[in-house]
Structures are given as C-alpha cells and as structure tokens.
Simulated assay, not measured.
Amino acid sequence: MTACAIETAADGDAVREAVFTIAADGSYAARLAGEGDARFPERWTLDGPEPYAVPLPADQPEEPDTGLLPLADGRVLIHRRQGGASHAFGGGAGRHSFSLLYPTGPRTGELPVGTVECERLELLPPAPDGSRAYALSVGERSTTVWQVAGGAFGPEYVAEVAGRCSGGVWLDRTGRMLALDREADGVTKAVAVDLERGGEVTPLLQIAEGSNDRLLLADPDSGLLLIRSDAPGRDRLGWGVLGSMLPVRFPECLAPADCAVAPFAVQPGQVLTPESCAVALRIDGAAGSWVGVWRPSGRRLHHLAGPEGWLAGAGLWTPRGVLRLPYATGAVPCGVARIEAPQDVVITEPAQAERAGGEPFEAPDTPVVCKPVPLQQAPLTGRGARG
C-alpha cells in the first residue's frame, strides 16, 4: 500500500491533486517541482538501486493546482484546469485537459488524452493495475466517475453515484471496487462502488446512525481499514477489518494531544493477519511534522523523526516492514530514507471495553445500533480471489 503527500485547502477539504504521488506498484512517483511561477512536473524512479528524478518541463510553467499521477510504465498523467477560478477541486465551470508526459531525449514528450467539461474534478489515487487513471466530477446532487487514462477513446464515463462524493480508496487489486465518502442529508458515510456493475453502491461503514464515517486507507491483502469517524463523540482515527463482525476500534494512542494524525501507508503482504500490519502516519504538531508507526496488535504509537526535506505525508512500505520516505534537499534533490518498523510487544489478551472512543468502541448509553464493516453482502468477497 502506497500513499501520497496531500495538500489541504484553506476550507479543510483534502486535495487529491497531491504534492507527491506514488504509483500503485511503487515503481515511480511524480511531483510538481519548482517554486512560484517556475513549476514543472518531475518523475521519480523508485524501483532501481538508487532513486533518481527526471524533469518533464512543458513549453511554459505549470499552475500550482496542476495534478500529476504516475503510471506503471513510466509515463505521467498531467491534469490541467482551463477556465474558471482556481479552486481545490477545479474551480468554476471550465475544461479539464489530460495528457501523458514522458522523457524523450532532452525534451518532454506529451500525448494529449482528451478533456472533460465540468465544474469540479479531482484525480483519484493511482489505480491498482497501474495502467488506468480515474477522476471524480462532483455535482450538486451526484458524482461522476471518469476514466481519464487507459481507455481506447480518451476520457470515458464510468458511473454516476447519487450524492456528493470525496476521498477515494481502492478495495481490491483489480481496480473494480472503489470506496468513496458520500455525503447525503448532512451525513457522510463511506460506500463501496462496483465499477464493473455500472457503479452499483453498497454501504461500507455504518458505525452509528448519525455519525460521519470516512475511509482513509485500505489494504487489499489483509483487509485492514483505517477510518475516521465522529461516532466516539469527536473525530477519531479507528481501524476495522474488511468483512469482519468485530466492531471498529478507536485506540487512544492514535489521538495524541494537540496533534493532527493522518495515516498514509499500510504494510502490504500480511495476508489474513491485519493486526500485524505496520501503519505509517503523518503527525503534525507545534514542533512540525514527523512520522508515526503503529500496529493494531501492539497498541502503541511510535514517534520517529522523518528525514530532512521529507515530502511530508508520502511514503511506502515494503512487505518486510521497511518504510521508505522520499525527501528532497538542496544537497540531495531526490532521496529515499529507509526506516525499519519498530518492534512491538504483541498484546494477545482481549482489550477491555471502555467508554466511547476507547478500544473497542462502545456506543453511549443511548441505544444506538453500531454495525461492523458491513461487506458480507457486497460483491467484494474473498480477498484471496482479488475482487
């Protein structure tokens, strides 16, 4: 499971057009390098003996809100907004153009893919197969899923989902099941969208009737889910397991005082052992940004210093538990630091139930039906079958 560094808009919306995005297989990454009026795409190669960067400048500088997404073949999808005021999700009505960039000698090759005309549009995280790319167009009452790369005829309509959707997490290795955070009647709930069945929607998170339940990360190998919900009374990080009948848990260690905590990568390859997965978190506090490492079985949040110039919120795990963190400094413009996951004393006895917000989560005295992650009836069955 890889992740990207996310910028946050002034209104608090998470912007998927990130400052650093890693391909689904960890082979490449892309970012908008430069500063001010001299920004340009840059591709990083991560799967060789040493990382290296290749600049992909166009004939003119890119806008600060330009989106980039690396594909597994080394090309980089670029999303440019044309017309309308600049906005975290694309601004006013206008055109969204897509092209594929690739190095060709000393210059940058550019293959136009096509355009989408809409008001608001954002790239989704890299698709698991590494060859396709998707985007969300958010309307007043519904959200459209577009395939913007990897098709035969340019951008293609995929599905329309009722409600205003955000986020975007892939639930399987095939790119069939997509989780979105859907707002309806003032409440946000994560839903699973089957892209092979015309966008058929299945409830994913239903922790409490009126709670806002969002999915942040999912690991298809183990089924581990990282969740943010206000069911405990305030926004808290929690975890559950895809298809499990156990309740979602909200560990106290994931709510350090005076800090913002956001997961960005989950250790892959831990099939059927979600409690052993190492999770990397970005922690922001008064002292700056640093790295947290946590496992459900250990119930302890380890605080680690990131490398100088860390592209905060970006990184990926190896299956053996090595966390790779990209960084850029004046002396090292393209670097990857490696951190071994700290060892935990595994706690095997059942945790004692605490009040709302403890581990595991219990509803307050008011009788509220708290459901687990309800995917037993969904089309995503059997992680071993990959979707």
Rank of each mutant, 00 (worst) to 15 (best):
S222E: 08
R386F: 00
L237D: 10
V293I: 15
V373T: 06
C253N: 08
L68I: 03
F264R: 02
T104D: 15
L224V: 12
L237E: 09
G84N: 04
F20V: 01
P125F: 04
D11N: 14
E349R: 10
A85P: 02
A208E: 15
E117T: 11
F89D: 15
A30S: 14
L178I: 07
R295T: 15
P256N: 11
V193K: 06
E349D: 13
R383I: 04
R43K: 13
L68T: 04
G298W: 00
I22L: 05
A260Y: 00
P364I: 05
G48H: 02
F40E: 13
D73P: 01
R95E: 11
G238Y: 00
S99V: 05
T318W: 05
V145H: 01
D129F: 00
L195F: 01
G243C: 09
G210I: 03
E62H: 04
R141G: 13
R80E: 13
F89L: 13
A149D: 10
R43F: 00
A378L: 05
P126R: 09
L281S: 08
R299T: 11
G151S: 15
A30T: 04
C277V: 09
R182Q: 14
G330W: 02
Q82Y: 11
G210H: 05
L71E: 09
E252Q: 12
E275F: 02
G130E: 12
L216Q: 07
F250D: 11
A278P: 03
V293T: 10
A18T: 10
L180Y: 01
G358T: 06
T188N: 05
S297I: 13
A260T: 15
E63R: 04
Q343E: 15
F89N: 12
R324C: 11
R120W: 08
